[in-house]
Amino acid sequence: MTGALTQVPAGWVPLAAVLLLALAALGATVDGALAARAQGRHWGSGLGLPMAETARLLRQRRRRTVAADRPLWLIGTGGLLVVALLMVVVVPLGRWTLSDLPVGVVWFNAMDVVVWALVWLAGWGPNSAHSLVGGYRFLAQALAYELPLMFAITAPAVAAGSLAVGDVVAAQEGLWFAVWMPVAFLVFCGAVLAFSVRAPFSAPAGADLAGGVLADSSGIDRWLLLAGRWALMAAGSAFAVAVFLGGGHGPLLPAWLWSLVKTGALLAVLVWVRRRLPTVRPDRLLPFGWVVVLPLVLLQLLVVAVVVVVGGS
């Protein structure tokens, strides 16, 4: 469509899925290593954590709570991973993309809004007070982060004059958008942590709610929820790399490798951030999101728009 990217046939979809899962596993591995170090063990002892946890949950039975809303529970549980996979459909790997939608940015936005429904459903399904509160907490949190997220990803689109991710990547030849729209980039990174329910935005799955939306899930259900969260974080990082960190642009290495390296690095940074910060309660986050972050992002957008108009004329 846009010419900047090569659209690969749908047969490559499984490869994209595998890459996303591998990145998700990388995130979980980094997290395990950091956790081990925080507990006074050698960081290397935490590397096996994702595999051990997967084996544990594969062996563990599922639970069926009394009068649970099972269809909705299943949708919420399995949906997170599916949404993460759908997000990366528009994210290019170097020069290749699965589908170079002319509205790729909107597509990503739409997928991230689906997470609202899914996390809430995962909280609603088990008919459990803790997870129900967790689900509603996510909605409150979503009200705080969603608008800043939307305006943050509008900024690169304005700068590129296109909603196609390929054009946004192409427009960053020479100068990454993260450099001259840092506020939008940082806000987007925060939003990635928020829609993957990671600290400081982990209240919906908080320790104070016995795990919140996770409180009554076990076995493969729990695995799908956890894997979905890691995959969302990986997909968010991949999208951030495409629209803020220059996608495949970079010296020496091939473009596809640059995409992967940058995504892995950003993901590792986000994991580190999530371990450094305590959870912020949604009710404390909401006024901050609306009164401080939202105006900042709007100002960022104004700056970008003015630069584009002045530079273009």
Partner: peptide
């Protein structure tokens, strides 16, 4: 254009179902 997304949707749903079956 949207074929990739459709295939990915099928793969994702299929994968989740497969995971549940594997777990059995």
């Amino acid at each position: 254009m949207y074929l990739g997304a459709a295939v990915m949707l099928l793969l994702g749903v299929g994968g989740a179902v497969a995971a549940v079956l594997l777990h059995r």
